[in-house]
């Protein structure tokens, strides 16, 4: 009797999560798929089965360029986040000696993640703007005559802001895996005569791969789905898939937005699948 009760309680305990995910994740994604085949006009959408919404995406040079642009952002931001994230995590995990200090510094890195992204984005304006701090300083130092225009409202600004917002998603998983590396492996490598670089390349990096993979998945999904950063930091001059979807939402063209959403989702899943070929993340938990 208690056996059955305890078996049943696992299901009961899992029930709320299951229900919420079914209703607010599975159903909405299914609905996106359905609605992407619907027809629409200025007022409402009509149940239908047409490929028009997909045709519009596939046959438009503009959308291809935007998808390319989004992938470009993704690749650059990923590379920068990986570089910064790896060395920050490496410093925390292997160079900081006491656990208290490690946790304190880790916390310093984590706090911005828990504050508003929009505010953190806006905060670049007084620094990078035409009359911003950086241009003023450079002009006062006599290094430049004209303010640098590319600093704000440009691809540069978009990438800078994304790295600023998202690097943390790389630091945390990499730090987490590094902290679990058995220190005696490093001792053994050192005793075996490996130098610092060899230890890094042959011991630490291979053992850190799962963390790198998880971080990469975060970066890919965050950048591929972004629309606020792109729009705000490029001053509306650059577009991403997210900002197309967002525009179509604004124009109430939901079936078109849904078609783009489905294509974006497929691209993201393919990228995540590719990353997962390298590691088994379930082992990481």
């Amino acid at each position: 009797m208690t056996r059955i009760l305890s078996r049943a309680s696992a299901y009961l305990q899992a029930l709320p999560l299951t229900v919420i995910l079914l209703f607010f994740l599975v159903l909405p994604i299914g609905m996106l798929l359905v609605v992407s085949f619907w027809d629409y006009d200025f007022i409402r959408m009509y149940p239908d089965f047409i490929w028009l919404n997909y045709d519009e995406v596939v046959n438009s040079a503009v959308t291809w360029r935007v998808y390319g642009n989004t992938l470009k952002y993704c690749l650059i931001v990923w590379a920068l986040c990986l570089f910064i994230g790896f060395w920050v995590a490496y410093f925390l995990a292997f160079h900081v000696r006491t656990l208290t200090m490690q946790m304190a510094l880790f916390l310093i890195c984590t706090v911005p993640f828990l504050t508003s992204n929009v505010i953190r984005m806006i905060s670049w304006v007084p620094l990078l703007g035409r009359n911003g701090l950086l241009n003023q300083t450079l002009q006062n130092m006599g290094l430049i005559d004209e303010p640098l225009e590319f600093l704000l409202f440009s691809d540069f600004a978009v990438i800078l802001a994304m790295v600023h917002l998202f690097t943390l998603f790389m630091v945390v998983p990499i730090f987490n895996t590094m902290m679990r590396i058995d220190r005696s492996l490093i001792e053994a490598a050192r005793d075996g005569g490996a130098n610092g670089l060899q230890i890094l390349w042959n011991v630490i990096i291979p053992l850190t791969k799962p963390g790198i993979a998880i971080g990469s998945i975060f970066i890919v999904t965050l950048v591929m789905g972004d629309f606020v950063t792109t729009r705000f930091m490029s001053g509306g001059q650059s577009a991403s898939v997210g900002s197309i979807i967002s525009n179509q939402m604004g124009l109430l063209q939901y079936p078109s937005a849904a078609a783009n959403a489905v294509i974006l989702l497929i691209i993201v899943l393919v990228m995540v699948g590719a990353i997962l070929r390298f590691v088994n993340i379930r082992k990481e938990l």
Binding site: P28, M249, Y254
Partner: peptide
């Protein structure tokens, strides 16, 4: 966690 946020927002809105 993996599905981009904007897709969840759009999906829930449409649903």
């Amino acid at each position: 966690l993996i599905v981009p946020s904007i897709l969840v927002g759009l999906g829930v809105g449409i649903t």
